[in-house]
Design a protein around this nucleic acid. Sequence first.
DNA 1: TAGATTGTTAATCGATTAACAATC
DNA 2: TAGATTGTTAATCGATTAACAATC
Lengths: 213, 213
Amino acid sequence: MARKKNSHIPEPSVRRLPLYVPLLRDELAKGRERISCSTIATQYGFDPTQVRKDLAATGAVGTARVGFKIDELLHAIEDLLGWRRLKNAVLIGVGNLGHALLNYKAFKHYGISIVAAIDSSEEKIGWEIEEARIYRLEDLVTIVKEKNIEIGIITVPAPAAQEVADYLCEAGIKGIWNFAPVVLQKPDTVFIENVQLSTSLAVLTNHLEHQNT
Amino acid sequence: MARKKNSHIPEPSVRRLPLYVPLLRDELAKGRERISCSTIATQYGFDPTQVRKDLAATGAVGTARVGFKIDELLHAIEDLLGWRRLKNAVLIGVGNLGHALLNYKAFKHYGISIVAAIDSSEEKIGWEIEEARIYRLEDLVTIVKEKNIEIGIITVPAPAAQEVADYLCEAGIKGIWNFAPVVLQKPDTVFIENVQLSTSLAVLTNHLEHQNT
DNA sequence: TAGATTGTTAATCGATTAACAATC
DNA sequence: TAGATTGTTAATCGATTAACAATC
C-alpha cells in the first residue's frame, strides 16, 4: 500500500529505517520470507513498538502472528528512502575522502550514483575513478545539465566549501551532501545534509572521558 | 567552574557542542574576546535558549549583557567533549576510507591521535601513513598495550567487522568508532559509536524523493 | 540609568514506551 | 482453539521553546 503523500515522517524514523535494510537483505538472501518487528528490534536493541512505528511509516502492512513479508517490507523502506530511483550525483574535491567515496561501490544500493567529479588540481582533470570522470569547476553547470545531476557532494577543504556550494546551487542542484565542517548558506529550494565526523567522535570521546553510563 | 561529575548531559547537546568549536576558534583567531548565545544561535539556525542550555551543560558561566569569554567557553566545551586529553587510537582496515582517515590531520583537534594501523594485506605491513605504521592483526594486543591505545577505529568491510571488534575488545580497548554497516556485539565495558553514511544519505534522498518541507 | 544578555523556571511539543483490542 | 503478533490509542518521558526575573 502506498504511503500517503506529504504525511509527516519523523526524522528519527528516517534515520533508523536504513539500519534495517542490511538485515532484511541478509535474511532475504538466506531464503527467509517473513520477519517480525521483535526480531528486528532484538537485533538493534530497539523497542519493538518503535520498530513497528518505523515500519508503519513506510506504509508496509504486516500480518498478525506471522509478521511482514521481507521483500515487500524492503521494497517499502527503499521506496520511502528514495532508494529505488537512482539519483545522479557530482562529487567536488577529489582528496583522500573524495577518492574513498568515489571508490565506494555500494552507493548504488543507497539511491545515488556518482557520475562525475570536480577537482581544482589541473593534473587530475580527465582522470576516471569508477564511473566518474574528473572535470574543472567551470564545467560544472554544463555537466549538471548534461548528466541530469540532482545531488552535489562536497568534499573540499572548509575554506572552499561555501564557494562550491554557491556554484552547485546556481547549477540547479536539488540537494547537497556536505562533508566540510562549515555551515553553508543556501537558497530555500536546496536541501543540505551535513556529515560531521567531529559530531560522532564527540559522542565517543565524551563518553570515554566522563564514563557516562 | 567544573562540571559536576556524572551529571547527565543530553546527547543532543553533546552532538551540537562540537559544531560551535570551529566558530569559536575562528572568532578567537580574529581577536574577538566575547560572544553571546544569540550570535552562536544565528550562525547555526538554532534557538538561542537551546544554545544557552548547551553551554550551561559544559559548566561555562557567562556575564549578563556581554556574553561568554570565548577562550573559557572553548576550554569548557573541549573539556566536556574530552578533547583536551589526546587519546591514542588504532585504525583497522587501510582501504580507501581508512587511508583517508589516516591522512586526516585535524583529528588532533578532536581529541584523538591515530598512532597505529592494522591491515590484512601482507604488502602493506610496515608502511607508514602520517604517524601510523601498519601492523598485522596478530600484533594488535601488543601494540595496544605498548602504545597505550584506548580507541579502535573499524574501517574493514562488513563481513570482517565483528571479528575485528572481538580482537579489539580482547585487547582491552575502551571505545570503538565503527564505520562498518554492522551491529557489533560487545561487552558492557566497551562503548561503540557507529558512523553510518547510509543513515545520513537516507535523510537527503528521502527529502529529495518526497519533498518533505 | 536603561537595556541587553544571562540563568532558570514553566509550557509546549514530539518521540518513545506501555497497554490492549483485533486478528490470523 | 490458543496465542503470537499486528495496529492503534493512551501514558510517559525528555527535549525544545517561551517567559521572565536577575544582573552587569
